[in-house]
Amino acid sequence: MNKSRKSSDFWSAMGFLLPNLLGFLIFTAGPVLFSLAVSFSNWNLERTVPFAWTGFENFIDLMHSQDFWLYFINTAYLMIGMPLSVIGSLMLAILLNQKLKGIVVFRTLFYLPSFTSGVALMILWKALYNPDFGPINMVINTISHDLGGSIHVAPAWLLSTRNVLGLRVESVGLTIREWGLGARDALVIMGIWTAIGGNNMLLYLAALTNVPPELTEAAEIDGASKWSLFRNVTWPQLAPTTFFIVVMSFIGGLQGGFDQARVMTDGGPAGTTTTLAYQIYTKAFEQFQVGYASAISWVLFSIILVITLINWRIGSKDLNY
């Protein structure tokens, strides 16, 4: 291939790539790098604060900020449902992988939460969690009443600071006083429900259909039980998918909580549902501390990166397929 032909190919390729590349540079890479630069400044939308480069001051401040750690704990807390949702997705995918009449209808029904508006779902859950008239508490109170207990035993859900771990509200630590069910748990339960029938289920379903039938048939001929078949044949074949789902769930979980806080709780009660993503928003657009908010973003990015690398290191060891 001569030189002019090579050059012409290069420019043709660039011509095709340019629209996407320009969009990426202007709308993704540019803002990302800009936010990195801004995180080393005191940039404030209120113009009376003169712009100055402040080095690592924002990062040091937030490491010493109790709020940052409380919101980090909230973020981590909302991820405690992750194992349940992954297991739930797998079980659901196995159920929906059966050759039954009308299975497509079931698959569609279980995937419904994923293509329903998130805000609509949150409003629906808010009503479900209504302390007095919500169906969840009505069931709990009725059962309590039937068992001879009080009819007001159900938790206040979105209005309560309590949690199953007994996390303190205003400081990092545990206390028996805060033990119970509250807003954070309500969001965890909702998250599990949303995730079980979502994209994870679809990924597992696709992975299950890709399990070579000859392996299954060979195991069956050898007299493997159902559990043994799953444990020794199917599960190892699903490892890459599980690995991908776990990595993506960690990333999504650490970035999450914004929509729920915005729509359902305003980050309350007493900041117990404020996650790092929501804190970035309030710091930048309500308190106008753009520099500080950018620093939180980069710390969050670093946490995600480290966790993903750890996941990768641990998870990739078992990936034989």
């Binding site: 206040a156 309560s160 600071t161 309350g268 009660p269 007493a270 900041g271 309030t282 309500e286 308190q287």
Partner: peptide, 18 residues
């Protein structure tokens, strides 16, 4: 910043009301 005040006060008022 008034929003900062609101965040601080709302947090404490949530605890009082509850």
């Amino acid at each position: 910043n008034g929003n900062t005040v609101t965040i601080i006060i709302n947090k404490q008022m949530d605890l009082i009301q509850g």
